[in-house]
Design a protein around this nucleic acid. Structure first.
Lengths: 212, 212
DNA sequence: ACCTGAACACCGTTCAAGT
DNA sequence: ACCTGAACACCGTTCAAGT
């Protein structure tokens, strides 16, 4: 018998998905500090130990949230590119706008997505078999898909001479860094919402105009 | 009578400074999740309730850490500018390098500095007199000093035509966003340490070359 | 195969009381 | 003016046991 992983109602119905959904909502509405496994279990109507079946620990839940965040952001970015038409600057601006809008709507989630602790060295707990340094696979994959999409747009811009030549990876990192930074400044309140669009336009102009 | 806030040894000696120092070390070595008021009190040899005299709650401690982080980063940036000599690109690169180096050495602290929660709307606790939305004064001040320093460098570059003309505030935000983004990508492991310098050089080139 | 209940070792925060 | 000790209401994590 083949096992499908969706829609197999057992005690709860679909606890994993329910926990993730509720967690994303809590994250958006109340921030990461308000996110507790026990509370999530309570809202789902299960015992506080039940989530353990689906998430090894709190960090695993956070990683799953981050991964699904990358998937969603990637989808939105691809949709924005498609909707932007042929003009290259418009496409670039669409990506930037989508990115920053995501950041303002789901600030805590984006923070989670870019926290992605490498399980830093020097963990102090002397527990047995401390599994350190593992890169969560699903997260990495979802993140790379998004970077791939934007990377493709970069390469397109270089082909048509809208962007400066050079290592596309470096240009990609620089662009993502800029978007990430604008997002961080916006959500930390250092950039007002009504300044964001101007900042995005400046950034896009900087990348494209540096060509002339 | 004027009150000085430093060096007045009481029971502990100088609990506030001791707590901050230990907190900064813990933050750097073990991350924010390992930072607990009770643990700090233990290391300082006082009861778990003693910190309450100096920090209203955990967030107040974090705000103080963030403020002192801005002071230190500001000092380092000013020193780097002074040491960089006359060449404008070199000065800009010095600022960027200092910024990103700070970010890699004190990743958790920088995150704290740019978290600066605005005490988001919709707090759920029904406590009396919920003091929301207050911007921590010392933090804001220290942050603005740093921005002022970099802003001055921007204006200098515009005067000498090394940077594009236009609203210096916007250019400042864009530059800080870029640095902040490079730092975020570096500490999240998406940029390897040996790529950072190239990325900084690219960024500086983008800002200065866009002039030609 | 999935979930419960009790238990353990932690938290932050509060508050009367001490010196 | 600064700190203690007990108390309260939470956590995450573990593990035997249930269905």
């Amino acid at each position: 018998m083949v096992q499908t992983m969706a829609d197999r109602p057992y005690h709860h119905g679909n606890l994993r998905a329910a926990l993730l959904g509720e967690a994303e909502r809590t994250l958006r509405e109340q921030g990461i500090d308000a996110l507790s496994l026990r509370d999530l279990a309570r809202q789902a109507g299960v015992s506080h130990a039940a989530p353990r079946r689906h998430f090894a620990d709190r960090q695993a839940l956070l990683d799953a949230l981050a991964a699904s965040g990358f998937v969603r952001l990637g989808d939105e970015v691809r949709a924005a590119i498609d909707a932007a038409g042929e003009d290259y600057q418009a496409r670039l601006r669409a990506v930037a706008t989508t990115y920053v809008r995501f950041a303002t709507r789901d600030a805590a989630l984006l923070e989670l997505m870019f926290a992605a602790k490498n399980a830093g060295p020097g963990a102090k707990n002397a527990g047995p078999g401390a599994v350190n340094g593992e890169p969560p696979a699903a997260l990495r994959e979802a993140s790379e898909r998004l970077f791939g999409t934007v990377g493709e747009l970069i390469r397109q811009g270089q082909r048509t001479d809208e962007l400066p030549a050079g290592d596309p990876e470096r240009l990609l990192l620089l662009l993502v860094a800029t978007l990430q930074g604008i997002a961080a400044l916006t959500t930390s309140g250092r950039v007002r919402a009504d300044q964001t669009d101007a900042l995005i336009a400046d950034a896009v102009a900087l990348f494209t105009r540096s060509q002339r």
